[in-house]
């Protein structure tokens, strides 16, 4: 996989590495995010080995410069929910 890309597992972990709760002790308010949806365009690097095994690398847009030669942006949308011990 090209060094500019990161594994799908890593990108999901980074996307979901959020604090998740909003605490205002002065006003006695505690919110937490129950479910979230993250969508982003990504560039893909799909590597196929000699046995046909596929490894997927992806990276959100790296440059914010308008060019005539555009990267091919795919889209990924993740819906995540609060994790509970029973795995549901």
């Amino acid at each position: 996989m090209d060094n500019a890309f990161i594994s799908f597992e890593a990108i999901v972990e980074k996307m979901l590495d959020i604090k998740g709760d909003i605490l205002d002790e002065d006003n006695g308010i505690h919110f937490y995010i129950d479910e979230l949806e993250v969508g982003t365009p990504v560039e893909l690097d799909v590597v196929v080995d000699e046995n046909g095994k596929v490894t997927i690398g992806m990276i959100p847009p790296l440059y914010r410069v308008g060019t005539s030669f555009r990267p091919s942006y795919h889209n990924i949308t993740l819906t995540a929910e609060k994790y509970s011990e029973d795995g549901n």
Binding site: V12, L16, I18, K19, G20, D21, Y32, I33, E35, L36, L44, S72, Y73, H74, N75, I76, T77, L78, T79, A80, E81, K82, Y83
Partner: peptide, 14 residues
């Protein structure tokens, strides 16, 4: 205590 797990995933490919 507060972590998130993937419930659904959609990917649009060109």
């Amino acid at each position: 205590q507060l972590t998130y797990t993937v419930k659904e995933m959609a990917i649009d490919l060109n």
